[in-house]
Amino acid sequence: MSLKKYFPIFVLPTLAAFLIAFVIPFLLGVFLSFTEFTTILDAQWTGISNYIKAFSNDDFLNALWFTVKFTVVSVISINIIAFALANLLTKGLKGTNIFRTIFFMPNLIGGIVLGYIWQLIINGVLKFFGVTITYDPAYGFWGLVILLNWQLIGYMMVIYIAGLQNIPSDLQEAAKVDGANRWQTLKNVTLPLVMPSVTICTFLTLTNSFKLFDQNLALTAGAPSQQTAMLALDIYNTFYSKVGWEGVGQAKAVIFFLIVAVISFTQLILTRKREVEH
């Protein structure tokens, strides 16, 4: 077909950018994780020694554990609160739109700015106890949880609202007529019907929590002594503040990528399965 000779116009600009910004750095990254290097051009093959170093690096293991804990807590709290708010805002109360506007707003503010806003608030509260957020890793942990809740609740709420509005109202009315109480209606009628939204929101909060960087850098920057550094920040530090550790940094990045990929594929399979059932 005549379309083929238009390949250079339609595809080439995007493809060139994609190759330079993604394909080449990605392949190079996989390769370099098996080598020792400082500038890419001086790479020496070292097999899996970077991976061994990564897994015996305390900072990395601590970051991994911190990230997993943080992700579990954030995913649960964000989704429960967002779903509850979405429920309140789909009852036809007056002023629903104003509330929705306010709850969604923090999602638009960038991670660095969010980090410093919450640093002020949290340090202000901790001041009453004579400490700051960098005093104990637990403060940084809960600080990050509060920050991410504040940022993502409105976003997830908006998705839940869309899901709840898709439920035909006669189903809930039918449940009422049949004598179901509120809790039974929620559990047996509403929740099964918003499961697609639950899957989407769980996945979005999961990846957003797991990949968190900017907020982490601004709020605690890993303090005290890297104990509140999450995976992304630990990888960054390994590359840019430890001379000679570039290979290990890249190995950590590959591990990080593999974990994120597993999460994404699980989500894909779950979504597919549910689509078949319907």
Binding site: F18, A21, F22, I24, P25, F26, L28, G29, L32, I40, K211, F213, L231, A232, I235, Y236, F239, E246, G249, Q250, A253, V254, F256, F257, V260, A261, S264
Partner: peptide, 13 residues
């Protein structure tokens, strides 16, 4: 490419 986190390509990019 959508599922690849930025840190994976940060240095090489």
């Amino acid at each position: 490419s959508m599922i690849v986190p930025f840190q994976m390509v940060m240095f090489t990019l």
